[in-house]
Design a protein around this nucleic acid. Structure first.
Length: 561
RNA sequence: UGGGAGGUCGUCUAAUGGUAAGACUGCGGACUCUGAAUCCGUCUAUCGGGGUUCAACUCCCUGCCUCCCAGCCA
């Protein structure tokens, strides 16, 4: 019996609990995650993965990874490899590793069996004709003229289809069910089509390939899957899923449907993501703006954050849209706990501390992670000339701005308290440098006299600064629903032109000189960043994973309205 | 239009005939060497109309709305 879990339940979990209690399948739980290797996994798949693997794990069951590779025209090994990597990265390990193509021989034999039982026939109608004969939502279809051809003839034709005697599209094997069924899936669905095309695993061994409906349920059955969890749009396919299993009299796997994940400002359709890649709107499947797991990984998402998110949003049958902010909450929550703090200045403004000695360098103690004492501390060099963030200074500060401005004192984090004494401008009136004085009594940022400073800002010593490139990412789409478009337009018209901003000449503390790609940091007061694989020795590149919550930006925005 | 699946705070999810709850968001405050985090407070919901019942989000009837299905895709 499963332990009482603090995890929130959902209707599928409840069903499993009931099945276990009633002794169904002797309490055995077997699930599977069945991606088609025709694209990369995205956050929507993560929800399914968490369910399939999570439920199996919770109830002492098993979960297989099975590639649904029945359509060689779209599938590639590149995707197979990427999918396995992503599943592992998310934190799951499959029990069995299978492919629908493992079952091609068995599926073929069962098809022959169905033909011989008068439940399937070879049809010579063209694709267009099949469509015409299918009828419409409101009108019943017509029976194919080949529907009642002799069984032996279908057996023979099907065998010759397999042998490659007929061209693509010339014939199909169809189940003989009911052309008048209100469920269109029952109107003699195609089971096999002819496709003279190499398959990523079986090569040229086959030139007929099973359709999803004919392959999926039987694959589940072969693997003794007890709970076959899929998304809502397969609801209409469930009766057919059951029909094949019943006709064949094989292990009765059962299908359960849950709501697919959708997120605001995000597209979760493999087809459309492929378009973004192919048309060059993004740099690839792992572009940090992509909702793919590989893209999110490069962006700096943690598997924990994604898993927590999936657990929190729940599972139901309601077609809803989850807000991006919900995902971002779990991202920040996890990063806050684990990311080491460092100081980096994105848009540098030079500061000269006039009363600080010219050649002195002090090593200041800085805490690595206030949320995690075990993370320890490090030394940060302090000297006469520093960089601060441009937006941390205002010559003419608005009311609620309490960072640096002429005559005002602020704290340099872990450094000293400084007061701005003068502003240097270029010929065009742009601020190029600040002059300040420091209070020697405030070393480390402490105030022995107990005086309060309203603001603490980050900084980097000019002489010790590491030059860095920083890539700032924003939503890939400008609309909450990227599919909401003007007549004649497609989703690409909603692409955000400002989804990527590249900053060069950023200044980071020396700690970041030799950092490893994939490492995540919090740049204090700015956000969370992840070292990109484009980094070169001495020249790190950072991806902004997500900004810190920015109350000041919100205030300022409100005031400007 | 035939069939199927759904409709609870702005969003996501609970409540399975018995006080409509939680998370996210928003707003307000406390605290702060990150305008972060944390803490506290707070706004807002059962699609409409009938019925059954001591009692209805839950059961019944009815209407409305949304999503899915007419691939030799999955």
């Amino acid at each position: 019996m499963p332990e009482e879990s603090s995890e929130r339940s959902n209707f599928i979990r409840d069903i499993i609990i009931q099945d276990i209690e009633s002794g169904k399948h002797s309490g055995r739980v077997q699930t599977r995650f069945p991606p088609e290797p025709n694209g990369y996994l995205h956050i929507g798949h993560a929800k399914a993965i968490c369910l399939d693997f999570g439920l199996a794990a919770e109830f002492g069951g098993k979960c297989n990874l099975r590639f649904d590779d029945t359509n060689p025209s779209k599938e590639e090994t590149e995707y197979v490899d990427a999918i396995m990597e992503d599943v592992k990265w998310l934190g799951f390990q499959w029990d069995g590793l299978f492919y629908a193509s493992d079952y091609f021989e068995q599926l073929y034999e069962w098809a022959v069996q169905l033909i011989k039982a008068g439940k399937a026939y070879v049809c010579d109608l063209t694709a267009d004709e099949i469509r015409e004969y299918r009828g419409t939502l409101t009108e019943p279809g017509k029976e194919s003229p080949y529907r009642n051809r002799p069984i032996e003839e279908s057996v023979d034709l099907f065998e010759r289809m397999k042998k490659g005697e007929f061209p693509d599209g010339s014939r199909t094997l169809r189940a003989k069910i009911d052309m008048a069924s209100p469920n269109l899936n029952f109107r003699d669905p195609v089971m096999y089509r002819i496709l003279h095309m190499d398959h990523h695993r079986t090569g040229d061994q086959w030139c007929i390939y099973p359709m999803y409906d004919y392959a999926h349920g039987q694959s589940d059955s072969i693997e003794q899957v007890t709970h076959s969890i899929c998304t809502l749009e397969f609801d209409n396919n469930r009766p057919l899923y059951n029909w094949f299993i019943e006709q064949l009299g094989i292990f009765p796997s059962q299908q359960f449907e849950f709501d697919r994940l959708s997120i605001t400002f995000t597209l979760l359709s493999k087809r459309k993501l492929l378009t973004l890649v192919q048309e060059g709107h993004v740099s690839g499947w792992d572009d940090p703006r992509m909702p793919t797991l590989t893209g999110m990984r490069r962006r700096g998402y943690t598997p924990e954050a994604i898993r927590n998110f999936c657990a929190n949003i729940g599972v139901s049958k309601t077609n809803g849209v989850t807000q991006l902010s919900h995902l971002e909450y779990f991202l920040r929550e996890d990063l806050n706990k684990h990311a080491a703090r460092v100081m980096a200045v994105l848009r540098p403004l030079r500061v000269v501390i006039d009363n600080y000695p010219d050649d002195v360098v002090e090593e200041m103690d800085a805490v690595n992670n206030p949320q995690d004492e075990s993370a320890g501390s490090r030394k940060v060099p302090f000297s006469k000339v520093l960089y601060i963030e441009q937006e941390d200074f205002r010559e003419d500060p608005p009311k609620q701005f309490y960072r640096l401005s002429p005559g005002r004192e602020v704290r340099l984090r872990y450094g000293y308290l400084i007061t701005c004494t003068s502003v240097v401008k270029d010929a065009d009136g742009n601020i190029v440098e600040l002059h300040c004085t420091y209070d020697p009594e405030t070393r480390g940022g402490n105030t022995p006299d107990g005086r309060k400073v309203k603001s603490t800002i980050h900084w980097v010593s000019e002489a010790h600064a590491v030059d860095a490139e920083v890539r700032l990412y924003n939503n890939l789409f400008t609309k909450e629903d990227p599919n909401e478009v003007e007549e004649g337009q497609d989703f690409t018209s909603n692409l955000n032109p400002d989804s990527l901003e590249v900053l060069t000449g950023c200044k980071a503390e020396p700690f970041l000189l030799d950092t490893v790609p994939g490492t995540r940091y919090q740049f204090e007061r700015i956000g969370y960043f992840c070292v990109d694989r484009d980094s070169t020795p001495g020249k790190p590149v950072f991806n902004r994973t997500i900004g810190l919550r920015d109350t000041w930006a919100r205030i300022e925005q409100r005031e400007n309205k």
